[in-house]
């Protein structure tokens, strides 16, 4: 589906942060079994202020502050989901995933399968990713590839305000474990967001954010907006199509392949480290299905296998951005 078609309904302008908050609010209103838990999600309003105001609106039972205990509350959320409620966990920074990984990989991801499908796990985990604010290596990582790679978990990563709201709501309504990876640098980015309370973005559907003829850029999170900017600046020289997969697992292979069959050229832009990652998966699927449509080698834009350094000039050196997307396009177009 094109992003345009989704927006052919009533919208309002809001930031990504407001869009996620609106999605959470609507789902809290819609279903009493839904509640938020995490570190400082309540009185504090979330460390990056996403849940601000929800504690006052819904109370401490439904917007529940936890101790600093990621393994404990990730496990509790898994057990709670298996027994009739629908927790929405905020993991303050995705770098803390490691602290809770046992419950994620051995319990949450495996219970439905190990039990022969007899346990449903409607749990959502929201977490923040990405560099750009000088938060250094332990608060700037991009780890969505781990989750997208691990069988039994779904992973989504919005790049626009509209998809931020739609994916959040779809994740909460899903009866599978879904991780929502929010890039912390786009919380202030504004966009048009459908106001319909039943607006969701189906998990597993990419959006063509911009149509073009010469090069396909598959971009995620912050790099969606940056790629759109590059595409606009190249207008007249190179016609760039920008696709936001929105969902990393499942991945909408068809939309990407269809685009590459048209353009013959592909750039994959994702902030995760380059080796063994999201870029590789997208590139592989494209060559499996559209090998003979490719007119040039597939290009990757990502973090060059370093951690995110603290010092701003170092961080800017490794953080993938619009100049990297532009250079990648120019190498093949």
């Amino acid at each position: 589906m094109t992003a345009q078609a989704e927006l052919e309904q009533e919208t309002e302008t809001m930031t990504v942060r407001e869009a996620i908050r609106q999605g959470l609010r609507e789902e809290l209103e819609r279903d009493e079994d839904v509640y938020l838990i995490g570190e400082d999600v309540g009185v504090f309003g979330g460390v990056l202020e996403v849940t601000g105001g929800l504690y006052e609106e819904f109370g401490e039972e439904r917007v529940r502050d936890t101790p600093i205990s990621e393994a404990g509350f990730m496990g509790a959320a898994t057990g709670a989901a298996a027994t009739g409620t629908r927790p929405v966990v905020e993991l303050m920074f995705s770098d803390f995933m490691g602290v809770s990984m046992e419950q994620i990989m051995n319990q949450m991801a495996k219970m439905h399968y190990m039990f022969g499908g007899k346990a449903e796990l409607p749990v959502t985990v929201r977490t923040t990713e990405g560099g750009g604010m000088g938060a250094a290596s332990q608060h700037s990582g991009t780890v969505h590839t781990w989750i997208a790679h691990f069988p039994g978990l779904k992973a989504v990563a919005p790049g626009t305000a509209a998809s931020a709201k739609g994916l959040t709501k779809a994740a909460i309504r899903s009866n599978d474990p879904v991780f929502v990876f929010e890039n912390k640098m786009i919380y202030e980015q504004s966009g048009e967001v459908p106001t319909d309370e039943d607006y969701t973005v189906p998990i597993g559907e990419a959006a063509v954010e911009r149509e073009g003829e010469d090069v396909t850029v598959v971009a995620t999170q912050r790099l969606v907006g940056e790629s759109l900017g590059v595409a606009d600046s190249l207008e007249g020289d190179v016609s760039v199509e920008v696709i936001d997969p929105r969902s990393l697992y499942p991945l909408d292979t068809d939309t990407i392949v269809e685009s590459v069959e048209k353009t013959g050229r592909l750039v994959v832009a994702d902030e995760s480290p380059l080796s063994y990652g999201t870029h590789a998966e997208i590139a592989t699927r494209v060559q499996e299905e559209a090998f003979f449509s490719l007119d040039a080698p597939i290009q990757r834009v990502g973090t060059p296998d370093t951690h995110m350094p603290f010092s701003p000039p170092l961080e800017q050196e490794v953080l993938p951005g619009d100049d990297d997307v532009r250079a990648a396009i120019e190498r093949i177009a």
Binding site: A71, G72, M74, G75, A76, A77, T78, G79, A80, A81, A82, T83, G84, T85, P87, Q103, Q107
Partner: peptide
């Protein structure tokens, strides 16, 4: 035990 805590949370 974390799963039991979670079940107790649902309860």
């Amino acid at each position: 035990p974390p799963l039991a805590t979670g079940a107790a949370l649902s309860i």
